[in-house]
Write a protein that binds this DNA or RNA. Structure first.
Lengths: 352, 352
DNA sequence: CCTATTAAATGGAACGTTCCAATAAATCAA
DNA sequence: TTGATTTATTGGAACGTTCCATTTAATAGG
């Protein structure tokens, strides 16, 4: 029912016996209108079944209250956690963030970005897809739309970044592995076109050098940043003449894939091959065996990113500082016991 | 650089030496303009760094190309899979769907819906939050916005629904458990205010009755529809005098929680207590033990929902048919061997 | 009671697009 | 050449808001 054509402030005005301007003022909660008038108008708004047309409003106001979140892999629970953190702070600011998925596809990302710009977003929080070209965010900058990178960054961009301390996280993880007695280490998953990859691999390498692992005992296998990538990495690693005995994975998804591949070969993750992940998604704790991983406080980073965005919007400035979040290694079971104290055989083996 | 104020079609017109109307026509890909003119205009568009203002356009056109997807729990990987299916079909229709999370909170859902309406969405695909009041979608209907429910529905609403055959899925699962020799069964998780819950529980109950399980041997424990809920359900179940030996869980997340709780008590999911899930998320296959679950072709349902939405938008009709997706039980390891023949290991084929 | 001040309400122009009706230019039929 | 037809292009009004400059009403000061 309710009139075919949608109601406008004029309809409200007529219904309430005031002018359209008065209605507009009420809509904006202006203190200039007499309380009784406001009540009358608000009643009319209900009666005619009015829905505010933000598009029309933005035409004059020039800045919307829509914030977009562009994510490279919705399937990775990590990003859901990030989103949850962001939503928490946006909600209390009365903003509903819209999420769009690029599925790690730069072309799709281009479309998504374009669509969001046309929609007139006030700001964008982005985890760029792999292979994003440097110019992809030029338009955004030109249009003066505030952008914040979360988790990932682009090589030589001036856009502020919210990310964990990747270098340190990887260092800690590698040091842990080495302390456990491992001497041939691998780094699994990710591709060198990601800055994050460089950082994590860098930390890994530094730990190896500092702690006396020679370069030819470290193996680096690139791959997809998901479970499938992990499977592939382990397979190629085990074809080596002297395969590694432990691996730091680019992220938890890769780690899960590695553990899966081990199981397929009837190897026990931990005792037979140590694996540590990165991100510490909630699943990590619940896997069998529980995954040792670098915790990055995902939701916290989401909140931080949202705050930076809010500030960027309010102060109308383009520049904000990067924020590097603290990390810590959560040791669980996926690295098994120390290699040196390894007298006791483990279930699968057969002996005894 | 590029002029502080954003470029409009007038700027393009001036640059290209044509009228604004011509520019508009080019923008819409009209065949009425001379090719050379089109080229000239397109160049100007590039030169001035133009970004289309969809809000302004919608003011006249009255129908946008934005489709919203409102989801009750972004954290559940199930919904990510659903979203992926939808995106596949929307992408080929040149539409970018926006996802918003309600976190199972009706109040938040209200805000999200309001925001999307104000944005002028062309349609909404919704998995309603638990405890949604019947009137929550009234406004949408009044405004004539096409809505499709995915996975969940509301009690007495006329809105089309895309969902799996919950009754049958639950029946199959319960029958499987009974065939394995279980005599005291439980249904874990979910709450009776969800229609889906009624359907699944209904199928479960029907199987029990039909296959000779007496009503006092079936235990129903309500709970959250996530991992935490599963933990809680198992705990209360095991305090019973004669606890069940198997459970059908409302969904996979609950099932994972149950398996976790079993592990905590040093019980082995499968041999010690059989558990089957619902939805068959990708993780189900990779858990230890791999989870037996009711597969619902999630991505397929997402595609279907998207198609229905597209049709609804194009035909401007309000009414569309429901779609009930086929289900099938994927048997893995989480139900252990048959209770009766419990000595023999489970080699698949056996006789050559 | 008149004027100055404050409080409330209002009309009109603008925002950036689309679409219709109208014009201008090119082509054709006779 | 003229008029009819087709092909390209164009100006103006409209869409639903906001905001500024005014007007009108109410209140206070003398």
């Amino acid at each position: 029912m309710a009139s075919r054509a949608k109601a406008t402030i004029f309809d409200i005005a007529r219904e309430a016996g005031v002018s359209k301007s008065t209605v507009s003022l009420v809509l904006q909660g202006s203190g200039l209108i007499r309380p009784e008038t406001a009540v009358k108008v608000r009643k009319a708004i209900e009666d005619v079944g009015y829905v505010y047309n933000r598009g029309a409003a933005n035409l004059r106001k020039a800045h919307s209250n829509v914030i977009g979140m562009v994510i490279n892999d919705l399937t990775n629970p990590f990003f859901a956690e990030l989103a949850v953190g962001m939503e928490r702070v946006f909600q209390s600011a009365g903003i509903v963030p819209f999420i769009a998925n690029t599925a790690e596809n730069p072309v799709r990302q281009e479309e998504v970005l374009k669509s969001l710009m046309e929609q007139g977003v006030a700001g964008l929080i982005v985890s760029p897809a792999r292979g994003t070209t440097p110019g992809a965010f030029r338009r955004l900058e030109l249009a003066g739309v505030p952008v914040v990178f979360a988790m990932r960054r682009l090589p030589e961009s001036r856009i502020p970044v919210i990310a964990p301390d990747n270098h340190r996280g990887a260092y800690l993880a590698a040091a842990h592995l080495i302390a456990k007695g491992h001497r041939r280490l691998a780094f699994f998953g990710g591709t060198s076109d990601l800055v994050v990859y460089q950082e994590r691999l860098g930390g890994f390498r530094e730990a190896c050098e500092t702690l006396g692992i020679s370069a030819r005992d470290v193996l680096v296998v690139e791959g997809e940043t998901n479970r499938r990538g992990g499977l592939a990495c382990l397979d190629t690693a085990l074809t080596m003449a002297e395969p590694p005995t432990a691996a730091l994975c680019f992220n938890d998804a890769v780690a899960f894939g590695v553990m899966l591949a081990l199981r397929k070969r009837r190897l026990e993750p931990g005792p037979d091959f140590a694996v540590v992940g990165f991100d510490d998604v909630v699943e990590a704790e619940h896997y069998m065996p529980a995954l040792t991983s670098v915790a990055v406080d995902t939701a916290g980073l989401g909140e931080r990113a949202a705050h930076v965005m809010l500030k960027l919007i309010q102060s109308r400035t383009t520049r904000a500082e990067d924020h590097i979040g603290a990390v810590n290694l959560v040791v669980r079971e996926s690295c098994g016991p120390d290699l040196r104290t390894r007298n006791r055989p483990t279930g699968t083996g057969g002996a005894a």
